[in-house]
Design a protein around this nucleic acid. Structure first.
Lengths: 190, 190, 190, 190
DNA sequence: AATGAATGAGTTTTCATTCAT
DNA sequence: GATGAATGAAAACTCATTCAT
């Protein structure tokens, strides 16, 4: 007996992410995914009942990975700015090192593949970010502004910078990261 | 593409934008566009030779509209901060009032529809933004940082805030706009 | 504008019936149906949303035609035996002259295509046959036996004889028909 | 086909018959058969080289069983009517107690699975029935009519009655059987 | 020009069959 | 032999595009 191969799922995910980065969600076919994953089309359907299900599973997987990275090495008991920077760097790290995932997640929000439920679950996952921002406001370290605005502002700069950097083939250097952080911090600090 | 009826093109564009916002580029068909535009499929092909051409024409149209709005009421001879805020507000305005166009443009960047040339032309159109930022640095009003970073930072906050606001059905108020500007300005100012 | 072609449905039905007679329900594909109907596969889907729907529509159509033939020239006010023979001949006529339809209907009863509802509707359609048999019993011309049994008996002989005749390529002659009727009548008469 | 395990073949046959009764020949897959037989798909191919072969083997098996039952307790030297009734009852018995087999056999006649040869062999097996009918005619106990017609008539009533009884969930009682025999006998007797 | 039915290439999905374990 | 994952050809279905009206 040959057991269902766990690594195959990774292959499929990797292949899909790559294709989506290249051609967008509009430009992928199950055939191409299979070929890129070096398996037969039929095999795809052993692991995922349909294209929809594959995309949804990948979406969930990417979201989980994102959240894992967001809170890595985050110490809630450390001083606020330390924690803030840790997470800020993690957000950047995810966008940089998992660019394909990031692109894929972005594309999914306007797609017929992802169900509203899946989206809702994704929204839940970033709740801890709200907590962090709230603490910053309580300690008078962040501007006393709607948390939602603070968060989208903080995140937006990262997203846009990384996206355009990678698209234009620009490397992102350590000093640049510090500069970008300063831009963000000067913006949000009280 | 022999535009006999200019309003029909608008209908087609509007229909397409709406569908893309709802279902993404991956989720639109020529049939659906025609139905949404209340014309026959065949008629679509009187106005656009192909789906590609339709998407590209719409892309160019949206880009042009965006740029028109970006520089509206912008007086290059006015003091820097005035000009900066004007443009910042315009960027926001476009994202808010032309949300569907904005979404569409975003989606196009990762799609098999838009050619590299078209993308390049789009990039050219925002050159004046670079000029503005450069002036700000020269006048020591902006941080002396890579213009690309300043721009993506400035724009990213807007994009992310508007996107998530609209998605969650939140209205954006005047005071909020001022707050968001403050966040951005505090970030970029020297 | 080209209106949806009514004759195309007939073409599709005819093609399907022919293929089912040759290969059974298990042996037909949408591709073959299209080819046999001399249209493109896609065209099939303009007229029927799915294979299921095509089969169901054909089933309903055949059933209706069957019933139309069953009661043709039937005069309820004529003496019982006249009416009985008229209908008996009609049943035979349908089986002989619409052999493909008959085969198709038979096959459908054990198929994943036909819904229970469609089957139920079909059962309703033969209610008048029960009425006829009941009258025969009341007039003491038929054996006083469960109508259901009388009917299945009467019909079974026809079905089996026609089926095997046609399969073995035997022509059915007028005298044979009279003989078969005698067999049936001697069986059911009181 | 190397039958190691005779019971496994029975399982496969039983599973197939059941599935065909439920969904028709058009609605069975090797995967479903395997699952219903509680074995792996691959195992199916140890016992049968192909789907065709499985169906053909089952066909032959069912035919043999049918014939075994048809002539059970039949004494060719007994008076004609005794023999006739014995066989008539056996035909009914087979249809009633082996309904799934009967359905399966019926379906096979219009299927791409069964070869013409296999069908021919099946036809041969009922030759003794012809002999019986011929004897009846010779003894002036049966109408002097084409044997083929007498046989299909005799058999058709049984088939139709049992089929519709079982479909509508009706039990068949002893007295009913006698009534049905009377119908048949009154029809065929001279 | 406008229409929408027709087309058929391309996509998703299924399934008989094979094969590694 | 037994298993069930893997395969890929074939089937169902879609959709950009054409064409007759």
């Amino acid at each position: 007996m040959k057991p269902k191969d766990e690594t195959k799922i990774k292959q499929i995910f990797t292949a899909t992410l790559h294709l989506v980065k290249e051609n967008g969600l509009a430009g992928i076919t199950m055939g191409e995914i299979a070929k890129a994953a070096k398996i037969a089309t039929g095999t795809l359907y052993i692991y995922f009942k349909s294209k929809d299900e594959l995309i949804n599973a990948l979406f969930t997987d990417c979201r989980k990975e994102a959240v894992n990275i967001y809170f890595k090495a985050y110490d809630a008991s450390a001083p606020f700015k330390i924690g803030f920077k840790t997470i800020w760097l993690n957000l950047l790290k995810f966008r940089m090192e998992h660019f394909e995932e990031a692109i894929f997640l972005d594309q999914c929000y306007h797609s017929p593949f992802i169900t509203e439920t899946t989206k809702e679950i994704a929204r839940q996952m970033i709740q801890p970010l709200y907590k962090l921002v709230e603490r910053g406001k309580k300690e008078n370290l962040l501007k006393d502004i709607d948390s939602f605005m603070l968060l989208t502002f903080m995140v937006g700069g990262i997203h846009e910078f990384v996206k355009h950097s990678i698209y234009s083939g620009k490397k992102i250097s350590k000093p640049q990261i510090e500069q970008l952080f300063t831009l963000c911090w000067d913006g949000v600090k009280d």
